[in-house]
Amino acid sequence: MSLRSLTHLQRLEAEAIHIMREVVSEAEKPVMLYSVGKDSAVMLHLAKKAFYPSPPPFPLLHVDTTWKFRDMYALRDRAARKAGMQLLVHQNPDAVRQGINPFDHGGLHTDMWKTEGLKQALDLHGFDAAFGGARRDEEKSRAKERIFSFRTASHRWDPKNQRPELWRVYNARKAKGESMRVFPLSNWTELDIWQYIHLENIEIVPLYYAAERPTVIRDGLMLMVDDDRFPLQGEEPVMRSVRFRTLGCYPLTGAVESRATTLPEIIQEMLLTTTSERQGRAIDHDQAASMEKKKQEGYF
């Protein structure tokens, strides 16, 4: 009998599947947070593998800000349908009413749509475990977050009071009202994600590939004018060959100039590039501890 060493991707895959099965076994009402980005795409793909031939036994939840790229909405609906999963979309009604947008409201935009919206959605449906696609290599405060991350009834994360996590044994017990955020991709790096997408032929939003797109440069970020809600301040959108390394709300997500139109070319560009991934996101531009603070307040 010839045995073989599992590759690093096979081991990461097995770990993520193991984690998902634990959650489904121990949580009363799990949900998968689905942001339509590449990490979400990988997470969804792993969920299909974990429970095959059953469809993943939980719904997908998209905490929508109404400001995502149009391509993202299209893929979101298609991916849920193909997986045979229920798709829940939550838009914070307060933010809808007040017309919160990234142009006029700065940090409030993230607070209300994402942080508050997420809490509302979890409370509304009574979810006690939510899968998220965050990785430990993204930034410092993530590096020490547990895979099963416990939240109080008011969704707070206490970095000083995290449960020790040994072997493959996860403590998912909690009192009524408390919940867990679970990160099956904790040990993946950006390169692992791309390699896996390539290897498994996973569909991702076309925005990750370079194409001619209308862009303006504002506050050092190259932004795509994705629809006519973008208030131009005398700028003239310029067609540039660009792609996105990370996807969020289109007015907050910086593009990079690129000619990479295939996955290998994207990986090639990523490997030869010299700036870290989150640089394209406006949310991290505050001080280093900002993410830790946001997470304590309930941000994913």
Binding site: R136, D137, K140, A143, K144, P159, Q162, N187, T189
Partner: peptide, 9 residues
């Protein structure tokens, strides 16, 4: 911020 187990890659 807590001193804890941090994982690096």
């Amino acid at each position: 911020i807590t001193i804890d187990v941090a994982y690096r890659f």
